Computed example of a mutant assay.
Amino acid sequence: MIRGSNRWAKRVELKDSPFIKKVLKSKFEADTARYLMTQGLDAEDIYESLKITYVKPAQKGNYKPDWPLPNGVIVETKGRFTAADRQKMVQVSKQHPHLDIRLVFYSDPTRTKINKGSRTTVAAWCEKNGFRWAWGSVPEAWLNEPEKPIIFGKELPDAE
């Protein structure tokens, strides 16, 4: 079911999942939730369960990662990867270098450019900025990595 009048903020409700009332931001997030559930993870419990405070240039902001996994890997799923998204990811990474944030893209990041007219691909941007990335779905290897401590459902301390 699509909700909202803003065409950029369409929301997709999972009708076939255990958490019918949970509204996700895209079909891609819904597909990721289904996949994580098939891997034995409780997608409802971990979806945006972590709140990371970071400082935007001249203002404070909050980042709620899509999928903070139980092993400490933080997965962000991206359809569009805008300049604002890229800036936010760089700021959060600089201010919280202990976090293992990884990106999963809907479109092939080795072919997708960061913007029209640019020669830089999304994959090249990720590598330049120190982000691990995947295309299509969360790699099983990421799910099976050793645990790194993150307190779920709690706010991380402010960046200094």
Score class of each variant (00 low, 15 high):
Met1Leu: 14
Ser5Thr: 13
Asn6Arg: 12
Asn6Leu: 14
Arg7Phe: 15
Ala9Cys: 08
Arg11Ser: 15
Val12Glu: 09
Glu13Ser: 13
Leu14Arg: 11
Lys15Cys: 08
Lys15Arg: 12
Asp16Gly: 08
Ser17His: 04
Ser17Tyr: 03
Ile20Tyr: 06
Ile20His: 10
Leu24Trp: 06
Leu24His: 01
Lys27Thr: 11
Lys27Arg: 13
Lys27Trp: 09
Ala33Trp: 12
Ala33Arg: 00
Arg34Lys: 13
Tyr35Glu: 05
Leu36Val: 12
Leu36Met: 11
Thr38Phe: 08
Gly40Arg: 10
Asp42Trp: 05
Ala43Val: 02
Ala43Arg: 02
Glu44Pro: 00
Asp45Gly: 00
Tyr47Pro: 03
Lys51Gln: 06
Thr53Lys: 11
Pro57Ser: 09
Ala58Glu: 07
Gln59Tyr: 11
Gly61Asp: 04
Asn62Phe: 12
Lys64Cys: 07
Lys64Phe: 13
Trp67Ser: 04
Pro68Ser: 12
Leu69Lys: 05
Leu69Gln: 05
Pro70Ser: 06
Ile74Cys: 06
Ile74Tyr: 02
Thr77Ile: 13
Lys78Val: 07
Gly79Thr: 10
Gly79Val: 11
Arg80Glu: 08
Arg80Thr: 13
Phe81Glu: 02
Phe81His: 01
Phe81Ser: 03
Phe81Gly: 03
Thr82Ile: 02
Asp85Asn: 12
Met89Ala: 10
Val90Met: 10
Gln91Arg: 08
Val92Arg: 04
Val92Phe: 10
Gln95Val: 09
His98Ala: 13
Ile101Gly: 05
Arg102Asn: 06
Leu103Gly: 08
Val104Lys: 02
Phe105Val: 12
Tyr106Ser: 13
Thr110Ala: 15
Arg111Ala: 15
Ile114Phe: 09
Asn115Ala: 13
Lys116Arg: 15
Lys116Val: 14
Lys116Asp: 14
Ser118Trp: 02
Arg119Leu: 07
Arg119Trp: 01
Val122Ser: 03
Val122Arg: 11
Ala123Arg: 02
Ala123Pro: 00
Ala124Ser: 12
Ala124Asn: 04
Trp125Pro: 01
Glu127Cys: 05
Lys128His: 10
Lys128Asn: 12
Lys128Met: 14
Gly130His: 05
Phe131Leu: 13
Phe131Pro: 01
Arg132Met: 12
Trp133Met: 08
Gly136Thr: 01
Gly136Asn: 03
Pro139Ala: 05
Glu140Arg: 09
Asn144Ile: 05
Glu145His: 06
Glu147Tyr: 11
Ile151Trp: 07
Ile151Thr: 14
Gly153Asn: 06
Pro157Val: 08
Asp158Tyr: 10
Ala159Ile: 03
